[in-house]
Each structure stands twice: as C-alpha cells, then as structure tokens.
C-alpha cells in the first residue's frame, strides 16, 4: 500500500491522509493501523494539558523549538473541543506555532475532540501512532480542559506535563482531585505575573500530601512561554524523566496499561458497533417490549449478546 510506505517514509502528505482516514473512521484506517503498528513505540509521547488560557500552545511552540535545536523531529497533535450541537470546531492552536510552520522536521495536526465529549477521542490515540511510525522522535499532544481529558491523556502519554498559571488559585483547588496525581512535570507558565510563587507553593503543598514515599517527586518549573524563559529547564526535565522511565520498567509498565485499556476499549466498541448495526431492528422492538414490561432490560441484554443460532 502506497499510503503505508509514504507514512513510514515520513512524507507529510501521507501522514496527513492517514490521520484523516482515522478521523473519518474509515475501514481502510484499521487496515493501515495494523500495518504500521510494528513501527511504533520509538517516539516519546508527551501530553501537555491544563486549563484554557494557560498558554499551552505557546509552550508547545517553545518546547518544540528547543527540541528541534537538538535535531530531533517533533509531531504535534493539538486538540480543541468540538461543539456537541453542530459537530463543528474552531481549531486555533496553530496560530501560536507559526514559527514552526515551515520547519520540515515538525508536523502539526489540529483535531476536534469529535465524539469523545470533553476527552480525547480514539482518533488522537491512533494519530499519535501514525506520527510515531513516521519517525518522529517526540509526539506532543496538547489538549484543553480540566477534568476528563487530563485523565485520558495519561492513558496515552509517556510523560504528562500539567500547565497552570498564576491568578487561578481556585482552579488549582478544583483540579486537585484526581488530576494532580497525573502530572510527571508541573509547569507554572506566565511566571512573570503576580502570584506565580503562590501557585508553586500550592502545588508543592499538594505534592507533599500526594506523593507516595518512594515515588519520584515531580518537579515544578516556572516558565514564560512568550519569551522562552524556563523552557531549557523544562526540556532537561523531560529528557531526564524519559531516561529514567525508559531505563527502569516504568515505561513498559505504563505502556502495557495503555495497551490493556486500548484493547478493552476497541473490543467494547467493536462488539457494540456490531450489535448496533446487526440488530438495530431487534433493539427497537426490545425497547417497546421493555417499555410494556413484557421483558426486563437485563434479560433483553442477554438476548442481544447471545450468539445467533
């Protein structure tokens, strides 16, 4: 298949086309994914997340410039929310990455969150694989939001950077529950603004409470994405962390967890889709029967998943 070869050669057109097939849920996409799978696993996948307005895109821009100065290739997936009402989306992260626009060692793809409400869609998992197979040394996934998408990004990324900014004390509180644990690196961006040190202190206090005794304590790094301050330090920490997990069994452990959840999720989807497409008329009649109390929903489900005779 031409497409596969083109992806493996790192050709932009091929990479772009394959990601489109994935986004469209096209049947060819699964075939293509099967074929590139052998070639994945080399890239370090970095998730960057944080609340809206925290300067993630500018941070990705600076971090990528830094990584490029070390002659490594970078693929970027920037995810913005899809409107649940119209299915449309405004994808504006590229604007802050203009400096990278013509760099042949950088590939940027904007994606709408589409089906996955507030979270990362399956498509972005698979798009990361395409960039990985295409020879990117790093794949950076940037996503907005506070909540589900941060949790989702863990399932996908090898390293997670959580971005916070001063002047949002309450939000640090709000995202504390469940989300703070996922950061491997904490970034306090816009560090030239009043209150930056207070945010750092708050994070440190939370880490005091949450970090398990023998686990490595995540660093808290101050950056100013607009000027590039603190980016060197961030890059060094990411590299150090990557070495650390790659040389212990931590990376393998994470990736196995990710594979497990992916396997379960695609199996679920597959079975569900099959039932929905094969037995849609049966479902309609069951709904009627359940409503009329001729049958209960649990018995109906057992009938639905029972193999056809």
């Amino acid at each position: 298949m031409d497409l596969i070869q083109s992806v493996l050669n790192g050709e932009k057109r091929g990479i772009a086309k394959m990601i489109t097939l994935i986004e469209k849920n096209a049947p060819e996409a699964i075939e293509a994914l099967k074929q590139i799978y052998q070639h994945t696993g080399k890239a370090a996948i970095i998730g960057i997340t944080g609340p809206p307005g925290s300067g993630k895109s500018s941070l990705v821009n600076q971090l990528t410039k830094k990584i490029r100065s070390e002659d490594k290739k970078v693929g970027i997936i920037a995810i913005d929310p899809t409107s649940p009402f119209t299915g449309g989306a405004l994808l504006g992260d590229r604007i802050r990455m203009q400096e990278l626009a013509l760099d042949q060692g950088v590939f940027i793809r904007s994606m709408g969150s589409r089906g996955a409400l507030g979270g990362l869609s399956r498509a972005s998992y698979d798009a990361a694989k395409v960039l990985d197979a295409a020879g990117m040394d790093y794949v950076i996934i940037e996503t907005v939001g506070v909540g589900q998408s941060e949790i989702d990004i863990v399932k996908l990324a090898d390293i997670v950077a959580l971005v916070l900014i001063p002047g949002m004390g309450d939000e640090v509180q709000a995202i504390k529950a469940g989300v703070m644990e996922i950061g491997d690196v904490f970034v306090v961006n816009k560090a030239d603004k009043d209150g930056a040190n207070r945010v750092v202190t708050e994070i440190e206090m939370m880490l005091d409470l949450n970090t398990e005794k023998d686990a490595a304590r995540p660093p808290v790094i101050k950056t100013i994405a607009t000027t590039g301050e603190g980016i060197d330090e961030l890059n060094e920490h990411i590299k150090k962390y990557w070495h650390q997990i790659a040389n212990s069994n931590e990376l393998a452990k994470r990736r196995k967890e990710r594979i497990r959840s992916e396997l379960i999720s695609i199996t679920e989807d597959h079975i569900l889709n099959q039932i929905l497409s094969d037995k849609s008329s049966k479902i309609d009649s069951m709904v009627k029967d359940i409503y009329e109390k001729k049958i209960d929903p649990y018995s109906a489900m057992e009938l639905l998943i029972a193999p056809e005779k």
Binding site: K17, T82, L91, G92, R94, I95, Q98, I108, S110
Partner: peptide, 28 residues
C-alpha cells in the same frame, strides 16, 4: 463554517502562501 458543522483551522494574520500551503497539507 463551524456552526455549519465544519472543522475550521484559522491561522491568523500575515500568512505567506508557503505557510498556508504547508498548513493545508498537514491539516489535510
């Protein structure tokens, strides 16, 4: 276009034709 259900990539001001074409290809 967004309200009509499309995904719109907006690239901002002062774009060279080269930047536009590169973005169009990567974004397919």
């Amino acid at each position: 276009l967004r309200d009509a259900g499309m995904e719109v990539i907006y690239t901002g001001l002062r774009q060279t034709p080269e930047q536009i074409v590169e973005a169009a290809i990567q974004e397919d």
